[in-house]
Design a protein around this nucleic acid. Sequence first.
DNA 1: TGCCCTTTTGACAGCGCTGTCGACGTCGAT
DNA 2: ATCGACGTCGACAGCGCTGTCAAAAGGGCA
Lengths: 348, 348
Amino acid sequence: MPVRIEDVAAHAGVSVKTVSRVLNGHPNVRANLRARIEASIRELDYVPNPSARSLAANRSYLVALMFDNPLAGSSYIMELIVGVLQACKGTPYNAVLHPFDAADDLAARIGGFVTQHRPDALVLVPPHANDAKLLQRLDELDVRYATISSKLRQSRIDIGFDERKAAAEIVDHLITLGHRCIGHVTGLKGHGARAWRRDGYRDALRRAGIDYDESLVAEGKFTFESGMAAAGALLDRRRPPTAIFAASDDMACGVIRAAHERGLVVPRDLSVCGFDDTPVARQISPGLTTVRQPCREISRLAVESVLQSIRDPGMHRRERVPYQVQIRESTAAPRKPRRPSRSASDTP
Amino acid sequence: MPVRIEDVAAHAGVSVKTVSRVLNGHPNVRANLRARIEASIRELDYVPNPSARSLAANRSYLVALMFDNPLAGSSYIMELIVGVLQACKGTPYNAVLHPFDAADDLAARIGGFVTQHRPDALVLVPPHANDAKLLQRLDELDVRYATISSKLRQSRIDIGFDERKAAAEIVDHLITLGHRCIGHVTGLKGHGARAWRRDGYRDALRRAGIDYDESLVAEGKFTFESGMAAAGALLDRRRPPTAIFAASDDMACGVIRAAHERGLVVPRDLSVCGFDDTPVARQISPGLTTVRQPCREISRLAVESVLQSIRDPGMHRRERVPYQVQIRESTAAPRKPRRPSRSASDTP
DNA sequence: TGCCCTTTTGACAGCGCTGTCGACGTCGAT
DNA sequence: ATCGACGTCGACAGCGCTGTCAAAAGGGCA
């Protein structure tokens, strides 16, 4: 039923092979011939059959985005997906999604996965992107991959942004507002994001000459509940922080919940900031001050890079894309001035 | 490099064709032969090459989920995706995602899309699922599709849930709490969800003997901003409602923002409920009372059904899956009793 | 046992494209 | 003018599987 490469060849008066060359952007086709063939393609509305292409060329034209299964539903992944789709648009590549339990031994199972789906390229996000054994196995299997925000040097193609600098910048913002006692809720162990964001927090304190107080740092796991629990511990201290920097928006929401439960009003009694700029940051009241993580751009670049690396296997790329600090209403100057003596009247 | 069907045939001592029959679940293979072949498949770790299959069988083994482009990033789509992936797991089918601007004339462009990607089945969500011309064109092209929450009878396979009943139920909840003056923020015109949820709102009022007041219904578009604007209008009325039912969680968040801006505390001064149970409903403070829309199950059923319809073209299916009303902290009894005379003291 | 009909199995072609390899044309250097 | 080197193009086989169709095997009945 549909038009085949053969029809195009006949229409343009050339061999099938030459049409194929034009389709695949091969050099060594004279310009006028190329133009004639391209015209025929347009005229006949020809689109190559992906299955036939895959079979003959022994490529799947598939890019697999692998992500952690329990995280499915997070807007982070959705944003990444959008970027991946953008990158595939206009190429013969298609995106396929593969949730994988991080609990499983992925390094062991990846072989089966690859022979089954034969993706031409993989895009890995944390925690998979931080799995050294997995990356090594992929190298052995000679499968191209790009990582996103991996903490491993091992990955030849990695896209991310300077999370440490961003974290420092947002903590700077709190310091500029006048906060001196700033709590931090960390991310999940093993994630690069955890260390980078915490280090940024430290950097900002150091620059401002504020002592780093271990007891102001509470363990989180990037989730709402973990943020709530961690904030509870911080707020129940004898001398609670006037501001809390949570390493993710979800956790920041948990912090706000914990504050509300204790009768605190944000930002009057507590400034809160998050990280990621997920949709909830905009929708919560007050709007959450946070760092806009350029997910779409990151995954778009990751896909573009990894596709490029198919042609140029030796390729390396380590790109940090620009981010943006989003100041909203959840951060404000602390209520009490630093010297408690001045404000005796405001406790009723 | 990898094992081919030929290897399996040799190992089992049968012809390639018989192995193919087993792979595709054809009848007319004697049980003992089938068992032997299945054993060989397992032993050799054989997985059929999808491209070769597609080419020979003239099927793509692709299910396309088409959604509206600007909506990308919504957790609704992400949930649907998860369901689609679940349904594909264990089948030879793969899911591909296709964002499409609803603004474009999809009915005209779908032909090109289909010849390009050759999906075996489509899953359509609103607004595409409500595009009569699109569905008609798909029928002409003989492409199987399933719709999700379509308002059109035309669709032979549609999965959804009883949104009208669910809306009535959540408004019942407000009435039971004692609210009599309940506002409603509608969804976007053209969506079935808009009409169903508004009708449910009306049903509940009617059952409770409360007059339907047109001026308590404000136009929304399912987005945060539209909810905020609509709530603003309702709250600035001479006699503002004591509760607002927004037709989506995003809009409910907008309602809460509008309330905050007017110095109102939720739920003390205003009860708010939403619809969908997106992640934000859990993370916002106070937690949002809403209806849990079983997205994953819906899309999973949609895919299962549409794949089934490939074998049985005459198939019809119109399934309503169970939903759940999620009561959280954003709804409470109204502050002032209905008779204003009793409460003279509480205005300072 | 022999016949016919049904069920089970296999030989073969071909899906639509690309890789290989060889033929031909073109150009510059000798 | 001759030759080689390179650039350009086409014939052909074959990627790994399934559809078609015919052959073989089984089964019921006379």
